[in-house]
Design a protein around this nucleic acid. Sequence first.
DNA 1: TCATACTGTCTATTATAATAGACAGATCGC
DNA 2: GCGATCTGTCTATTATAATAGACAGTATGA
Lengths: 182, 182
Amino acid sequence: MSLDVGTHLKAVRQMYGLSQRELAKRAGVTNGLISLIEQNRVSPSVGSLKKVLDGIPMGLADFFTLDLGGKPQVFFPREELANIGTASVELRLVGGRLAKRGMSILHERYTPNADTGEEMLTHTGEEGGVIVKGKIELTVGGESRVLNTGDAYYFKSSLPHRFRNVGREDCEIVSASSPPSF
Amino acid sequence: MSLDVGTHLKAVRQMYGLSQRELAKRAGVTNGLISLIEQNRVSPSVGSLKKVLDGIPMGLADFFTLDLGGKPQVFFPREELANIGTASVELRLVGGRLAKRGMSILHERYTPNADTGEEMLTHTGEEGGVIVKGKIELTVGGESRVLNTGDAYYFKSSLPHRFRNVGREDCEIVSASSPPSF
DNA sequence: TCATACTGTCTATTATAATAGACAGATCGC
DNA sequence: GCGATCTGTCTATTATAATAGACAGTATGA
């Protein structure tokens, strides 16, 4: 996510066919402020930004979530799946070369005792998966649970989370996250 | 979405077990500022809020999307996965009860000769998956391919597509589609 | 040509966000 | 009891966001 609030706001405003003054009037701010924001000459307070977006109208979450922006590959043989993991955690990404994806789909393999770490992972969006082989301990937002083969999970990725293979054999998971984290 | 940035930030910070000073240090702001923000005595500039969230770390979109309060289900035991398929094609949906999902994650099982049908499936969005067990013939946009265990696929759901189990054993797939088709 | 109405930008002033550093309460060990 | 080290809050100062209003450019029509 770029912090280019200015051009982002400008794009959104124009998308709605509003002039700076028109939006300013609806939002209860001055047109000058909108000009300054759009030029990135000030970093608006979230209060001000909310007022501005209310005039569109659009929520803060939507504003920050919004992304403005040949024959693609369909089949991905096992050996073509890019490994983006580590020694103990193998992460094989489906569709890595695709320019624009809406999801990351991963085939993950955790060796016994593999651990994504104390410092919890966090990223954008949401993710879920199915345990395909073995067992794994998943901790999400302070709550832990051991998942066995066939079990599944789904959560907001912004919650701190951690995977730890507590079994004696490799654990395999197929997971998906949206928007893509890789 | 409440504009109660203060208590929201406080909740997030505490969820990550950080003190005001610790977070301030990581974020490169003063602890006083975080105190003032959390008391809603100032409306932070989005620049400052971003710096603060970077110290957690968390994106602005996540911050404004995150809904504290309700605790959604995270763990889904195998037997709780709703079966929305047929006799020959078992479709087990992860997170069916979740109010708002961005994806459909499915654990699919195709019996030998199971077929999603001549009349090709089409819907919006995109989907992908990994073959977890067995083999399956996938046809997308006129192109066919037999995928074996470990292989994967990813395509735009608007392309006509069809799955057919051409093996002699059950075929299992873990798939995801976005936006959710179920 | 001139007037009117719109566009976005700029500047001086005012309001507010952010800093640095002091302060008080709580906890831990000595 | 005392010092050290946390916790969060508060205040005076500085930096910056936001305002009001002027300004220039463009377009439309009388």
